[in-house]
Structure formats: structure tokens, C-alpha cells
């Protein structure tokens, strides 16, 4: 997952470095408010801990080994803000002293592994924890958080790789940096992460969490976090949505009748007339607007609808409790 230098253009690196600055500032501020001075050395030691997690090689089927990133685990154990700073420090030590991960690409690596991964993992964990009340459920929640957190981070890395050939070409139209488009980089990154690395990450997250909780419960982070960064995360995803336009082909299962013909050779009878319903925004575009803007507006509208549904469900369950 460590992106080396020269695979991303310097401008991409600058963008991600700039994107990390508010995240770091907020994390430092939050830590200063939240953590007593007494706990300050813990951040440094937490950084050493998250560095060491990556040193542990775990056996994989077929005799090879793989390692976990551990960002979700650190987020669950120390809180997401501390994890952001600790993983950043660990990544800097790796980039500067061990040559692992690029120096220019440091911002992008931090964005994936010190921001996206711990925060998404932590939120998934804290949301799932509410639904799984018992102890076993908590361990399952931490497994899912580790699994999804790693895969989201890998997805971001894949997108960063994949947009390079579309954005940075030389005069002959050949790519200057990472040569693989999204259609190659996403499957190449996601298949191993979904099948193997995610499982390793989930297992390590859940087993270590279970151990620490059993042996010394009071060391686990018990803080309430605001969901504001979650909204920021969703907003970023909305803005990144137009990237979908760069990807070739249609999403699995979202075929039109012509594509079904090319896939199956014929159109199933039931689909001939019936599958298209008139949605408010056909093909995710709003008429009269540019495609990209339309894409963003439909994403915002989609999220608003989902939030509305959640709100309604919540209100209903609250009434029920009363």
C-alpha cells in the first residue's frame, strides 16, 4: 500500500499533501484538548507500535506471508485522532529512514493510511458496536472495521494510481507517471485486498483488540467522537464521484438492454419492456447541466435521501422506545 515516489505526479502529491494539512491541524488540536499532557509520550510510543505492527509477518495459505497495516487497530485502541498522528509519524520514519514509501508521495500515503483508514475504520467500528451489544459482536465489528478500512484505503490508492495516465501525458499521449488506468489499477489493487489482505487486517484487528480488552480493559480508548469528519469524508467522496466518469464500462448489474444483449446474446423476455423506470435523474445527470456537475448534484441528492431515511427510521425507533 505504500506508494513509492514517481508513480504519482508531483502535482497529485501536492494536492494530497495540502489535503492532509487541515486533517493534521485538527488532529493536533483535538489531541491537545483531549489528551492530558501526561499522555503525550503515548503518541510517540503509539507511532512506534504502529510501525512495529507492519513488521509482523502472518502466514497466508500457500506458504507466503503478509502483514497488516494496523491503522484501524491503533484507531480503536488510541482513538482516531491519535491514530492519525501516530500513523503519520510511523509513515515518516519509514519514508525518511527506511526508503519505504515515497517522500513526495508522503501526503498521498498519509491520506490513505493515516486519514481515510483510521477514521473510516473507527466510525464503522463505533456504529457497528451499537448494534452488536455483546462481546462477541464487538469482535466481529472490529473485524469488519479492519476489513473495510483497509479496502477503502486500498481503493483510494488505486484511484490515485489510476487517474495518472488520464491526467498526465506527454506529447505522444504516453503516460508520464503510473501507466495503468483505473480499469487496471482498481482490480489489481482491490482483488488481493478484498480476498487476502483485508482478511489478514480484520483478523489482526479483532484478535489484538480482543486480547487487549481481556487483559487490560482500561487501556482501550473510550471517547466520544463527533461525526463531523464523517460528513467531510462523505463530501470528499461526492466530489471524487466524477472520477467514475473516467472509468470505462458500466457497473456490474447496471446494464441497459443493449449491454445485456452483448453479455448474454439475447434480451430476457421480462426485460424487453419492463426494467427501465423513469427515475428523476436518468443516468445520474440533471438536464441542462454539465455532466460532472450533474454527477455531483445527484450524489448529494442520493446522500440526502439516505440521511432522510435514516432519520425517519431513528425517529420511529425513538417513538417505539418511549
Amino acid at each position: 500500500m505504500h506508494i513509492p515516489d514517481n508513480y504519482l505526479s508531483p502535482s497529485t502529491c501536492a494536492v494530497f499533501g495540502a489535503a492532509m494539512i487541515p486533517a493534521w491541524r485538527r488532529a493536533v488540536k483535538k489531541i491537545k484538548d483531549e489528551i492530558p499532557r501526561k499522555k503525550m509520550p503515548m503518541l510517540g510510543i503509539g507511532a512506534a507500535f504502529s510501525f512495529l505492527i507492519m513488521m509482523f509477518n502472518l502466514p497466508l495459505p500457500g506458504g507466503t506471508t503478509g502483514h497488516a497495516v494496523g491503522a484501524v487497530l491503533v484507531a480503536i485502541l488510541l482513538g482516531p485522532y491519535s491514530a492519525c498522528i501516530a500513523v503519520t509519524a510511523a509513515l515518516l520514519v519509514q519514508a525518511l529512514f527506511f526508503g519505504d514509501g515515497g517522500i513526495l508521495a508522503f501526503g498521498a500515503n498519509c491520506f490513505n493510511m493515516a486519514f481515510i483508514m483510521p477514521f473510516s475504520g473507527y466510525y464503522i467500528f463505533s456504529i457497528l458496536k451499537k448494534y452488536f451489544k455483546n462481546e462477541k459482536g464487538e469482535y466481529i465489528a472490529s473485524f469488519i472495521a479492519g476489513y473495510i478500512g483497509l479496502n477503502i484505503a486500498a481503493f483510494f490508492a488505486a484511484v490515485e494510481f489510476g487517474i495518472q495516465p488520464a491526467l498526465f501525458k506527454d506529447a505522444a499521449g504516453l503516460p508520464l507517471y503510473c501507466p495503468y488506468p483505473l480499469s487496471v489499477s482498481i482490480p489489481a489493487m482491490m482483488i488481493p485486498h478484498l480476498l487476502v489482505a483485508g482478511v489478514v487486517e480484520g483478523l489482526v484487528t479483532s484478535l489484538v483488540y480482543a486480547y487487549v480488552k481481556k487483559v487490560s480493559l482500561d487501556t482501550v480508548y473510550e471517547g466520544s467522537v463527533s461525526y463531523k469528519p464523517l460528513y467531510i469524508l462523505i463530501a470528499t467522496m461526492v466530489i471524487l464521484c466524477p472520477l467514475g466518469l473516467l472509468a470505462q464500462g458500466t457497473a456490474w448489474g447496471e446494464w441497459g438492454a443493449e449491454e445485456v444483449v452483448s453479455l448474454l446474446g439475447y434480451v430476457p423476455k421480462g426485460m424487453e419492456k419492463g426494467i427501465s423506470f423513469n427515475s428523476l435523474m436518468p443516468d445520474y445527470t440533471v438536464s441542462g447541466l454539465s455532466e460532472t456537475l450533474g454527477y455531483i448534484i445527484s450524489a448529494v441528492a442520493g446522500i440526502a435521501i439516505i440521511f432522510l431515511i435514516f432519520k425517519l427510521v431513528n425517529m420511529k425507533s425513538l417513538k417505539h422506545e418511549k
Partner: peptide, 27 residues
Amino acid sequence: KYSLLSNIIGNVFIQSKLMSDEMYSAM
């Protein structure tokens, strides 16, 4: 193997918490 290695990682974490308290006192 997984739970054994995870226990080692967990142990390292608990030790690191203890060390950080000691370190602060020393500082």
C-alpha cells in the same frame, strides 16, 4: 498462529502504555 501473534502484538501494546506512563514520570 494468528491468535498467538496477535497476543504478542496486544502484549506489546499494553507494555507500551505502561512504558509511556513511566516515561512521562521520568520526563
